[in-house]
């Protein structure tokens, strides 16, 4: 972790400890949420999209300002059929969408063609966020070293232990090799299908929700957080998505950094209001997840509902 990021975390932690949680609503003015509004919006998400649940997480990590059984939201086993990197390449080749207002990292997409430009300068002058080199060539097949044993000599070669006793293969009623038949012959998909646990926590410092990603490969083995960046829109992977400790779960997880969430949400709310739609705070997470979808376009989590937000064209 970069030192400046550490400092910032320490600072943020101190501020969080000494400030009181937001109680006055500033949803329309600043795009932020009070704790109560987060609970209201979370309850609404859970009831409209039942794949989401509230969880209480690690007892030692519980935040006293949140109800014990509503510490954070999670949806598990969300499919991610393709790598964001490869989707983007296709888009660009087709002159597809591009990010509007790129300097602000707003993540609004426009569907006109994108003028080809080199991103290389941009990439070299990155700010302090942890930068991870992603080689586009091996985005698909790289299997993380969590379990592969490639660089971990600690892990003995299991092939020697292969056993014949009592294994399901000998049984006529057992379907063989599930994940090979899980997809049509298009064999790219077999390796590409990952699943994600997506969680939403409340960030007290920024007073916004914050999204965390835990990735798994096709046999449901944990991905390294670095590999998760392959499923993040490449414009964000190197800037706004960081790898940090999850506030309620053990381990390092990739997270969309919330420093601009308030501003982005404020813009979305302004757009809605200019269209004559009065945004309601319990819809906040739907708007928020819609915006997050531009950061993680291929992770198919559930956030849709038939609510009237005016004609949002994106």
């Amino acid at each position: 972790m970069v030192l400046s990021q550490k400092f910032h975390e320490a600072f943020k932690g101190t501020v969080e400890r000494i400030t009181n949680p937001r109680t006055v609503s500033a949803f329309k003015e600043k795009g932020v949420l009070s704790i109560n509004e987060f609970i209201v919006a979370g309850d609404n998400l859970v009831s409209k999209c039942p794949t989401w649940s509230w969880e209480s997480g690690e007892p030692s990590k519980r935040k006293s300002y949140l109800p014990t059984e509503k510490q954070f939201l999670i949806t598990r086993n969300v499919p991610c059929l393709r790598r964001a990197a490869s989707v983007e390449e296709e888009y660009e080749a087709a002159g597809g969408e591009f990010l509007l207002d790129n300097e602000d990292n707003d993540g609004w997409l426009a569907t006109h063609g994108k003028p080809k430009e080199t991103k290389s300068d941009d990439e070299e002058n990155l700010p302090s966020m942890e930068t991870i080199e992603i080689s586009k060539k091996n985005t698909i097949q790289s299997i993380s070293s969590y379990f592969g044993g490639e660089e971990e000599d600690d892990i003995p070669d299991m092939a020697g232990y292969e056993e014949a006793d009592n294994v399901i293969e000998t049984d006529a009623a057992t379907l063989q090799s599930t994940y090979l038949v899980a997809h049509e012959p298009d064999d790219d998909n077999i390796l590409r299908t990952r699943t994600y646990d997506v969680s939403i926590t409340y960030d007290k410092y920024y007073q916004t929700p914050r999204v965390w990603l835990t990735g798994y490969d096709e046999s449901r083995m944990l991905l390294l957080p670095e590999d998760v960046l392959e499923d993040v829109s490449q414009d964000h992977a190197r800037k706004t998505v960081t790898i940090e400790d999850h506030p309620h779960l053990p381990g390092k997880h990739a997270s969309v950094h919330p420093c601009r969430h308030g501003a982005v949400m404020k813009k979305i709310i302004d757009v809605l209001m200019s269209r004559g739609v009065e945004p309601e705070v319990d819809k906040y997470l739907f708007l928020f997840l819609k915006f997050v979808a531009s950061v993680i376009p291929t992770i198919e989590y559930d956030y849709t509902m038939d609510f009237d937000l005016g004609s949002s064209s994106t």
Partner: peptide, 9 residues
């Protein structure tokens, strides 16, 4: 597809 245990580090 193999009869081997899993391992995670």
């Amino acid at each position: 597809g193999k009869k081997v245990p899993r391992c995670i580090s």
